[in-house]
Design a protein around this nucleic acid. Structure first.
Length: 479
RNA sequence: CGGGGUGUGGCGAAGUUUGGUAUCGCGCUUGGUUCGGGUCCAAGAGGCCUCGGGUUCGAAUCCCGACACUCCGACCA
């Protein structure tokens, strides 16, 4: 049927212009709105609902592993920020500052937190005296401000929502275990909840967090082949503890500095979800965090009994513990189909007079577009199975994309040739020299993503200097 | 922060070169109609043309400045 082209909600094709596609989806799926301040975005109800679901799922994982939530002040006195040298060098340039309280100019200016290591340390100093006070396993959900020069919805905000975990431990070993445990929690969360495959790895010294001894990361590949750093877990050693003079009396009755970690993940994840799973019809949401898992649409809803039948299905699915919406607005069915596809709702259940006669309903999958007719008495069971199947399929598709866009390279020339064609992950050996890392950036245009935890243990050559070495490393173009 | 582009009802655009009553499509409202892939018909509402200065009898249009969005770099969750 030659439908006219008045699809005003139509979005730019992913293949034509990925960045424009991304912006279109953010706006048309009603996730965000721009505000009058550059880089500060309004999270609309549907977008915020995704974040709420992420928070609930992730928070449960934190609590299971013994962490407690706290709320720290939003303002950091400049003197506090100054205490750790590397840290202040990294963050001071992008701080927003409060210089007035009411009409009085402040004697010392306050930074609006870009991250909270320093203020946690100030507090830790007060509450840690004995080994019995350790570990401290704290987390907070809050927003932070970083005065970024350019901004993009979810990927780079001047104000963004995140969680930051801050922990203190009696021993290095315990702190290192915590660092790795939290990395694994992030990885599991991405895989099991967001259906996003990740590469677990360690950052190079150049890419690590300011003030950290080691930074671990989960790296994701977006549909366009670019990398998104999605969650990081840092081991600090006792650097901050020394700078802030945090000590505790050990069992040996000697004073020791505790060992520290921090770990964070942000609303950037939502950008990751969009760019990993979305398609030309809009958003595709992982079922486990979708604000609406199933939308029930009555067909020919003015006909007797249809609305009641649809409401019945909605109530059954709700009772089965699912997040369900019925749309009985007077838009046409075709409009509703397109609308809920744009919003990425995993499953659509249709019921009309014909179905009622046959005691069935029609179920359509967002990920594949596949439609099936299901006997009404099998509704709950089928929907639950399909939601799991969608999750698995989304994960598999994303993994396939990453595998197809990952190449082993052994020379700079080879790397250049691949990257010039399209964005991909490059895997190689690396000698560990900063110069070689810089050369990859300057000559190829890629940054190191991470040294994967899973190392091949083989010997090869650094693609830049040709030296024999054993470390595997991923390179990519990053968001 | 450097280079380009853009800013006109909620959205997308025309109008800007050559100053002279603000235009179109979608959306919105109301009534009817239709309903298994963005129904159709009719009537209506809605605009300091991003903001601030200038030039002019008169500015969406010309000049200066600010702000925002966007793309490409540098910096970054």
């Amino acid at each position: 049927m030659a439908k006219d082209q008045r699809n005003v909600e139509a979005i730019t094709s992913r293949e034509v212009d990925f960045t424009q596609w991304y912006t279109d989806v953010c706006k048309k799926a009603e996730l965000i709105d721009y505000s009058s301040i550059k880089g500060m975005f309004v999270y609309r109800p549907y977008g915020y609902a995704i974040w709420e679901n992420i928070m609930h799922a992730m928070d449960a994982m934190f609590k299971e592993t013994g962490h407690e939530n706290v709320m720290m002040p939003m303002l950091l006195p400049e003197s506090l920020l100054q205490k750790e040298k590397d840290h202040v060098e990294g963050f001071a340039p992008e701080c927003a500052w409060v210089t007035f309280g009411g009409s009085e100019e402040l004697e010392e200016r306050y930074a609006i937190r870009p991250t909270s290591e320093t203020i946690f340390c100030e507090h830790f100093k007060n509450v840690i005296q004995s080994h019995r006070d350790l570990p401290k396993l704290y987390n907070q959900w809050c927003s932070v401000i970083r005065w970024e020069k350019t901004s993009r919805p979810f990927l780079r905000h001047r104000e963004f929502l995140w969680q930051e975990g801050h922990t203190m431990h009696a021993t290095e070993e315990e702190a290192r275990n915590e660092t790795m445990q939290m990395l694994e929690i992030y990885a599991k969360f991405f895989e099991d909840v967001l259906a996003m495959p990740v590469i677990r790895g360690r950052k190079t010294d150049k890419e690590k967090f300011n003030g950290a001894e080691e930074t671990y990361t989960v790296e994701c590949m977006m549909h366009d082949g670019k990398a998104l750093q999605s969650g990081t877990s840092h081991y600090f050693g006792d650097g901050f503890a020394k700078a802030f003079d945090i000590t505790f009396a050990g069992k040996d009755n000697q004073l020791h500095n505790p060992h520290q970690t921090s770990w964070g993940s942000s609303t950037r994840m939502i950008g990751g979800i969009i760019m990993t799973h979305g398609d030309d019809n809009g958003l595709v949401l992982p079922p486990r965090i979708a604000p609406i898992q199933v939308v029930v649409l009555p067909i020919a809803q003015h006909k007797p009994g249809v609305l009641d039948a649809a409401a019945g299905l909605r109530d059954r699915l709700k009772a089965a513990g699912l997040r369900v919406k019925m749309d009985d607005s007077d838009q046409s069915p075709g409009w509703k189909f397109a609308q809920y596809e744009m919003k990425g709702v995993p499953l659509r259940v249709e019921i009309g007079p014909k179905d009622m006669e046959k005691e069935q309903c029609c179920i359509a999958r967002r990920d594949t577009g596949e439609k099936t007719f299901v006997p009404l008495n099998e509704l709950e069971e089928t929907v639950k199975q399909l939601l799991d199947a969608i999750h698995d399929n989304m994960y598999a598709m994303a993994l396939k994309n990453r595998e197809e866009k990952t190449f082993e390279i052994s020379s700079v020339a080879e790397a250049k040739e691949l990257i010039e064609k399209k964005s991909v992950f490059l895997k190689s050996k690396w000698c560990g020299e900063l110069d070689c890392e810089m050369a990859m950036k300057e000559q190829v245009g890629v940054t190191s993503r991470c040294m994967p935890l899973q190392q091949s243990r083989s010997i090869g050559k650094c693609p830049v200097c040709g030296k024999e070495c054993g470390t595997d490393i991923y390179w990519g173009v990053a968001y």
